[in-house]
Design a protein around this nucleic acid. Structure first.
Length: 276
DNA sequence: GTGATAACCTGGGTGC
DNA sequence: TGCACCCAGGTTATCA
């Protein structure tokens, strides 16, 4: 599941290969990907333009093209970008040919991924600002700021972490791993956390995301980098998808429960369940 | 405004 | 072996 570290892994691998190149041809095979624009309409906005920068914001991959045109790409559940795959992969939704002869293939078995066009800097910022809170690694993302955003909230902290408007880039995997690092139960009401807990959680989020980036992402199911290689973060998960196994910190059992409607993994010795 | 839930979608796993 | 069913999850829309 591409979360911030997986998208960053893709960005780092692709940026030196696409920056400065032109999108010679763009073929969109799935109208779901480009809607509300028709495939030809979106492809027409991209073709011939030079890639000035490949950026990222939260889980969005930002293809910043000349003339202030940006392709805002979200991989959702199973999206993968492959660079010069040896064979034509299955579930190809978009084909891109670069002007130096290299090829990109966007594959997405579940077809949740999206590509949207922003015309102009203001449109891009409006799109992102409406959907995303601060980047976890930025100085503006602070424990005190998160605490303010959560004030009065009774929803579980896991739901708060998954809400991209509160903090950008955290998904199900990294929320579980961050909460375990911080010793906080995922069902604890977000508004009930003390400042010291927010400090621990902020540090846990940053540490989990950085570990994911260092491992080139987590490849539980579909994630592959642009060269088709798997990430290794799944090999060092503390709790996520480890139900029934001993907690690496205390040896207690890792349990699976549902929080925010998502499969959630917790060690209730390290992460005491809230009373009531 | 807030929180919970359904819907989108398909491959893989499980049970019969 | 084949079929039906369930589950996974990021985001958005809808409802209470």
């Amino acid at each position: 599941m591409p979360e911030l570290p997986e998208v960053e892994t893709i960005r780092r691998a692709l940026a030196p290969r696409v920056q400065g190149r032109r999108l010679a041809a763009v073929e969109i095979l799935d109208a779901r990907w480009s809607r509300p624009l028709a495939p030809d309409e979106l492809a027409g906005g991209l073709e011939g333009r030079r890639v000035e920068r490949l950026g990222r914001r939260g889980k969005y991959l930002l293809w910043e093209l000349e003339d202030e045109v940006t392709l805002i790409q979200h991989l959702r559940m199973t999206g993968t970008l492959l660079f010069d795959p040896p064979d034509e992969p299955s579930h190809v939704r978009v084909r891109i040919a670069l002007d130096d002869g290299h090829r990109l293939r966007y594959t997405d078995p579940r077809r949740f991924g999206t590509g949207e066009l922003a015309l102009g800097r203001a449109a891009l910022e409006a799109f992102l600002d409406a959907r995303l809170g601060p980047e976890p690694f930025d100085a503006e993302c602070t424990p005190a700021g998160l605490r303010r955003a959560a004030r009065g909230r009774t929803a579980p902290i896991k739901a708060f972490l998954l809400d991209q408007r509160r903090i950008a880039g955290v998904g199900n995997i990294y929320a579980d791993e961050a909460l375990h690092r911080a010793g906080i139960h995922p069902l604890r009401p977000a508004g009930a956390l003390r400042l010291a807990q927010w400090e621990a959680l902020h540090a846990g989020v940053v540490a989990a995301l950085q570990a994911g980036i260092d491992a080139h992402g987590a490849s539980i199911d579909d994630f592959r980098d642009p060269d088709g290689a798997r990430g290794t973060f799944q090999d060092t998960f503390l709790v996520h998808r480890r139900a029934g196994e001993p907690c690496p910190a205390c040896g207690g059992p890792v349990r699976k429960l549902v929080a925010a409607g998502r499969g959630t993994y917790v060690c209730e010795r390290c992460q005491p369940r809230p009373r009531g």
